[in-house]
Amino acid sequence: MDLILVNLIDGLVTGLLLFMLSAGLTLIFSMMGVLNFAHASFYMLGAYFAFQISLFFGFWMGLLIAPLIVGVLGAGVERYGLRRVHQYGHVPELIFTFGLALLIEELVQFLWGKNQMPYDIPEVLQFTAFAIAGNSIPAYKIFMIFVSVGIFIALLYILTRTRVGMIIQAALSYPRTVEALGHNVPLVFMGVFGVGTALAGVAGVIAGPVLGTFPGMAFLLGSIVFVTIVIGGLGSLWGALVASLLIGWITTFAAAYNIAFADILMAIGFTMPEDLDDSALRDLWTLTLPQIGPILPYLLMVLILVLRPQGLFGKRDA
């Protein structure tokens, strides 16, 4: 029972982290129709910038400045790259972001090298917040939860209570009408892209010390972010939140419980083959849940796309 609570907290941290990435991505998608493959690369840039800044000014300045730099870079990419490619259609746009992801990874390796960066948790947060049945919950995790929830609330406030948010929301559903009303939609696009990438940057800053800061970190998270927003429904902020938490908990619980498939197979009436080594299905018999945990989201995504192409909360087709 205690372990379930601990896993709930761990899954929440993973899910909220995922949410910070998917929130920006889903906003960008719903406005511009672009699936930004380079989104996780901005997350990586956030971590690297924050690491570099933390060397000189400490962690907190990194948390403050790095996302800003990432956001400005993101806006620049939109202004000088995407906007140009936009005229060719959606597929070249997507392919552009795909190429950008490759390029950013190469640039990061060129600038910082290929090793793990010793980017660490700030001293003030290096203590155990509390413990549940011997399982310590580091204070940093609590900090991560607060940051992500804070961002979610701020995002929700801006989108629903401010003028800018209204325009964005309107542009989500009726971009042409909004343009006809005289709003500078390209500027809104650039702003949303910048804010979305900045959010990814924040996620990178706070995830870098716990999940590692290395050139492969974007690739590791890249496709799962897509999976999240597709499951949640493209363009839906609430969908992104629900799907992020769902995936966070699924992967956490799948990793936490060693359920063997042999047990399940035997429970439903199959008998274990006598000589396992010669059986063509031997891998199925030795399979455990943690082995397939990280690919469960993909399975879920394929199922959802086949059964409900608009995702859990989406209003329109993906």
Binding site: L3, V6, N7, D10, V13, T14, G134, N135, V210, L211, G216, L220, L221, I224, T251, T252, F253, A255, A256, N258, T288, P290, Q291, I292, G293, P294, I295
Partner: peptide, 23 residues
């Protein structure tokens, strides 16, 4: 007390594994 395999290069957060080890 435990003998397990995790997918190579795909685990983003090792916390659940760490919990099991501690537990």
């Amino acid at each position: 007390v435990g003998n397990e395999l995790h997918p190579i290069g795909k685990v983003k957060d090792f916390t659940p594994y760490a919990r099991k080890i501690v537990a």
